[in-house]
Amino acid sequence: MTDLRKDLVLGLVLLAAGAGWSALAWATLSPGFGGGDIGPRAFPLAFGVILMGLSALFIANTLGRDTGGAAAKEGSASILWGPALLLLLEIAVYGALLEKIGFVLATPLLVLAVLGANLKIRGPLTLAAMAAGLTAGCWLVFGKLLGIYLPGGTWVDLG
């Protein structure tokens, strides 16, 4: 996808987001009671409308852009959708596991998944050392030394 098309898609997505946001703010939030009270609706609605306006301006600007100009030649990075969505999934699973099996068991699983699947680390020794070292180090420093509460699980609780 060219930069021009990417910007166009971005502008359209933002325009839709602004429209959806504004409609939701209008439909679900109450206006003020008058006498100086502008209510909880005014700012979300105003920001939504401003986003729509800026997005429309951005789309117009993109459509009118000189495709042979310097800006067009500045290539934006390609989006790594696979690793991004994989990481999001891993974080979501980690959040669920944190409540069920606790920090001590969920963290090495996350480290192994991220190192193996996302970061393509294959050495078993590195994987094991990173999983055990990061978990033990964080548990010791944050949980025991600094007194930060690290969750135990509802299924298994290793402290």
Binding site: I91, L115, L134, F142, P151
Partner: peptide, 29 residues
């Protein structure tokens, strides 16, 4: 790569400790 894994764990602890809430971990992601 190893730094990224360490940063992720630190950030997850940081996000969790703000309100001791899993919701903040999802929000971070």
């Amino acid at each position: 790569e190893l730094l990224a894994a360490g940063v992720l764990v630190l950030c997850l602890i940081g996000a969790w400790s703000v309100r001791n809430s899993v919701f903040d971990i999802y929000a971070m992601g």
